[in-house]
Structure formats: C-alpha cells, structure tokens
C-alpha cells in the first residue's frame, strides 16, 4: 500500500466525486495537537504560531489528511463581548456572557483582524498555509450562528427564550451569522477552508423543531455565503442528530460530519446527497484498547466507504485532548488499511 497522493490531492478528488488512492482520514484533531506538541493549552489557543506549529507536529506524527485550526466554540462570542477564563492547561471557560452585560442592540460585528482571539486563528491559518498549504488542506472551524448565539447568552435563558421570546433569539442569530460570515471571509483570505461547527444545535440539546426554526437558518446563511466561492462545505454537529437527519439535507452542506448516529442509517438517508464524515466514538479513542479501536475503526470504514458520494473517516467529536497518541495512531493505520481503494 504505497500512497500516491498527498492530502491536498486526496481531498481534491473527494470533492469532485472521484476516488483517491484511499479514503480521506480526518479525525477532529484540534486541541489534542497541543498534547502531541507538548505545549500548554493556553499557549495553543492564545498564540497563532504555536497553534499552527502544534497542528503541523500532529500531522507529521499521525499523517492524517488535514490541519484543523480550532480550540473551542466560544471564539466569535468572545470577540463580541462574552468573557472567558483562560486556565493554564485547559480550554477557555465562559465566565460572563455578553448579553448578561449589555443589551442586544449593543452587540457589534467583530473585526476578525483585531478583536479578541480571532487574529490568533487567522495567524495560525496563515502560518500553516505558508508552511504546508501546498500539500495539506487547512480546515478552519467556524462556530455556526446558533452556537455563537448561545455563547453570547446565559445558556438556560437562551434555551428558554427559544420558546418565550423567539424573535429575540432570531435577532441574536442574525447578528451571529453576520459575525460568522466576516470571520469566514478573513479565514478564506488567509488560506483556510471554513468548516461549520454547530455543536449546540445537536439533537442532544434542542428539539428538531427548535433546530429547524433557529439553528438551520444560521447554517443555511453561512453555507450560502461559502457556496458563492464554490466551496464544498463541511458541517459538523456533535451529539445525537438522528432526529434531524432529514433536516440536515436542507442545510445545503456538501459534507456532513456526524457524531452519535448509526452510520448505516446516516448513509441510507444522507449519502445520496451528501458526503459523510464520521463518526468514531471519541470516548473509545480516549480510553479504549488499541486492539478494540483497530477492529472497530476497520468496521466503521468498511461501512463508510459505501457512501455513494464519498466518505471521510473521522471521529464523531474532537479527539480528546489527552487521548493516548498510540490510540490515535491505531485509528489512523486501521482506517488506512480498511479505506484502501487501489488494487
């Protein structure tokens, strides 16, 4: 099994419906890269160059197929006024949501080149792009409007307001969409391919009805913006999305990254229209045995590659920060073996 293609070429073939040498393997290696590189998390999410270097170290170590510029979903909300604590060796924690400090009318669209940590991500993208961008796609995660909206608000209040004050929620989402578009715009100019993450729109958090009314329009708006560039858009939603599988078709996403969904069911319902990404259980990756991981990954990939419009072997959620690197390596080598397409 000699690989012929580099990740850039492999991804390029996937998005034009062609079979590469093997299936794309893009586990959601985000902040876990800090562990691989041996740096403190705080350095990872506050220093763009450190983030990029950690991602490059991780990709050299694991040889997966894309760099993932991301730390946590509050980044846009923070640039709009929410305050976060920065633990030394953990991810930022929401301390004061913006909308508990001021009124919705005071929410401003952030300047991605100036405000809060958005420039950190842009710097990371620039760095990674100029270092390895010819060979490796640089994926940059953009929190979708629903998720940002929730990070701007007191979460309980936000969920209550989806029933009590839906207009207010829609307004928040509208502004969050605008912010996400501005951030995506700069990500693109830096060389990153924006991918949407909407973890809080999960079926584990909200009902299908709420998803349709509040989360879906934000996703659609952002995807529409990205489609103007003729990009194939990736949407990732954590948790159980089984109840909203049919609604996902309405997002317009070209690739859907799934978490706690029966893979075969997702393929049956979505694969004729979308490429499927997923969905290895990350808890197993964190705590499972290498042998168990290998056989389960092979099984998953065997099903995944049946998806008619293409498949990316991935994890259902972010690879746990301190997942044993040996386990991640097992994941990748098993996926390479099971996802080999050439004779």
């Amino acid at each position: 099994m000699t690989e012929i293609l580099n990740p850039r070429e492999r991804f390029g073939l996937l998005v034009i419906d062609e079979k590469p040498d093997r299936c794309n393997i893009i586990p959601l290696i985000t902040s876990h890269a800090a562990t691989v590189a041996g740096i403190k998390l705080k350095e990872y999410y506050t220093d763009g160059e450190a983030m990029a270097k950690a991602q490059i170290t991780a990709i050299e170590e694991y040889e997966h197929d894309a760099i993932s510029i991301f730390s946590e979903v509050g980044i846009i909300a923070e640039a709009m006024g929410s305050e976060f604590n920065y633990p030394d060796d953990d991810l930022p924690v929401l301390r004061i949501p913006a909308l508990t400090k001021f009124d919705i009318d005071k929410l401003k669209i952030p300047d991605p080149n100036k405000d809060s940590r958005l420039p950190v991500y842009l710097e990371a993208i620039e760095y990674a792009y100029s270092a390895v961008g010819d060979k490796i796609p640089i994926l940059a995660y953009v929190p979708a409007p629903f998720t940002t909206g929730m990070m701007l608000s007191d979460p309980n209040q936000f969920l209550l307001d989806t029933i009590r004050n839906p207009e207010q929620i829609k307004k928040i989402i509208e502004i969050s969409l605008e912010a996400a578009i501005e951030f995506s715009y700069e990500i693109i100019n830096a060389g990153g391919l924006p991918i949407l993450v909407d973890p809080l729109a999960s079926g584990s958090v909200i009902s299908p009805k709420a998803y349709q009314e509040f989360a879906l329009p934000g996703e659609q708006g952002l995807i529409k913006f990205l489609h103007r560039y003729d990009f194939d858009v990736i949407l990732h939603i954590c948790g159980d999305t089984t109840p909203i599988l049919d609604l996902l078709l309405l997002t317009g996403a070209d690739l859907i990254s799934l978490d706690k969904v029966e893979l075969n069911l997702a393929i049956e319902r979505l694969a004729p229209k979308m490429r499927i990404i997923g969905n290895f259980n990350t808890t197993k990756l964190g705590f499972g045995s290498p042998d168990g991981i290998a056989s389960q990954v092979r099984e998953m990939v065997k099903h995944g590659i049946k998806a008619e419009k293409g498949y990316i072997a991935s994890t259902g959620c972010e690879v746990p920060i301190r997942a044993p690197t040996g386990n991640v390596k097992v994941f990748i080598s098993a996926a390479k073996e099971a996802g080999w397409f050439l004779d």
Binding site: G12, P137, Y229, D230
Partner: peptide
C-alpha cells in the same frame, strides 16, 4: 458547472502564488 469564483477560492485549494 459554475465557475465565477474569486482567486481566493483557488488559493484556498492550494494555489499559493495567487496570494
């Protein structure tokens, strides 16, 4: 078959000189 895209599209897909 659409193709009216700005240079940024192709740059993101790896054409670095477009920068």
């Amino acid at each position: 078959g659409i193709y009216l895209s700005p240079p940024a599209t192709f740059m993101v897909y790896g054409a670095r000189e477009l920068k």
